[in-house]
């Protein structure tokens, strides 16, 4: 019987953690050849940014990894979720599938870990206060962001990016320290952000890509048949997470903005801002000019072929390229 010490996602993401992850690992635990100890990362105080190190050292066997945070130790991984690159979830999925193999190679080589799943929380959108009719009205607003590329994109839109700790965001929005906060519609709904904001801006800035990685030594202890079964099981987990990203966020948008189709989230009455095609074009332009080049420069310091690898995978799938 192999023991899998597992760290799950943040417990605040109830739908993912209680709805999918915990049942999935309980199912694995029920297998005769596996025993699983599962804890959400905040239940035991694991920092999301440490994930790659904890996997490499074998502190844990399986971890739910927030790519944006973990890319602290590997900038190439951030390339999967750069702000403004993918216009919608379908495009994001194509990009992920295109880069999956290259990602796994690098993960195995540098961090002694194997890629099991890759999936997004969903489109990262803005919960705002104030009179906002379109992207132009973001000018001068204080927007709470949490990744370097998101900060550059928001700056390109004329807003002032502000960094705050996640646990302070609710209060910051309530008191006006920040005018807008960025997160997935469902996460914002669960975090009760509509209680303290009034305007919903459905412009996807990024997708908050997550993954499940397994320590490579642990993986190699399984025989071929077990590896096959685990691969299939994790593929099902990934599929469930993608379905969540699609279904849940549409419902969450409906609920945040008080539409009749709202069913599974708390209903609020935020005003829904219309996003015109010109806005998307503007976002893509900022991504090409301000986000990609800066990221490529950082990334190539650790990985000289970075820009090329990105162009061949994510870039190819989304029609963008780094010069």
């Amino acid at each position: 019987e192999t023991l899998l010490r597992t760290v799950g996602n943040f417990s605040g993401n109830t739908l993912h953690v209680e709805g999918v992850e915990r049942p999935f690992f309980e199912e694995l635990d029920a297998r005769d050849d596996l025993a699983v100890i599962y804890n959400p990362m905040d239940a035991i105080g694991v920092e999301a940014a440490d994930a790659l190190r904890l996997l490499r050292s074998g502190s844990f066997d399986v971890m739910s990894v927030q790519i944006g945070m973990a890319s602290r130790d590997e900038p190439f991984f951030e390339g999967i979720d750069l702000a403004g690159v993918a216009p919608d979830l379908d495009a994001q999925r194509e990009a992920i599938d295109a880069v999956r193999e290259r990602f796994d190679e690098r993960l195995q080589e540098r961090f002694n870990a194997k890629l099991m799943t890759l999936w997004p929380f969903g489109p990262q959108m803005m919960f705002c206060n104030g009179d906002i009719q379109g992207v132009d009205d973001l000018e001068g607003k204080k927007v709470r962001v949490f990744t370097p590329s998101m900060s550059r994109l928001v700056q390109g839109l004329g807003a002032a990016p502000v960094t705050l700790q996640f646990s302070e965001v609710y209060l910051a929005l309530q008191r006006g320290v920040a005018d807008c906060g960025v997160t997935a519609p469902s996460a914002g709904n669960n975090g009760k952000w509509p209680e303290v904001t009034d305007t919903f801006v459905p412009l996807p800035l990024a997708y908050s890509v997550q993954g499940h990685f397994m320590n490579l030594d642990t993986w190699n202890r399984f025989d071929a048949a077990q590896q096959q079964e685990l691969t299939e099981a994790f593929a099902r987990l990934e599929e469930q997470m993608w379905e969540l990203a699609y279904d849940v966020n549409d419902d969450a948008i409906a609920c945040n903005t008080g539409q009749d189709s709202c069913s599974d989230h708390q209903a609020y009455d935020m005003r829904l801002v219309e996003i015109d095609p010109a806005s998307r074009a503007l976002v893509e332009e900022i991504a090409s000019e301000a986000v990609l080049p800066v990221w490529a420069e950082t990334c190539s310091r650790q990985y000289p072929e970075c820009a090329q690898a990105w162009n061949e995978t994510v870039g190819d799938a989304t029609g963008l390229s780094i010069q």
């Binding site: 973990a70 540098r110 990744t147 370097p148």
Partner: peptide
């Protein structure tokens, strides 16, 4: 790893 903080400052850690 040449780690950089995953924040807008991207401080070399």
């Amino acid at each position: 790893f040449g780690s950089l903080a995953s924040t807008p400052l991207q401080t070399p850690l």
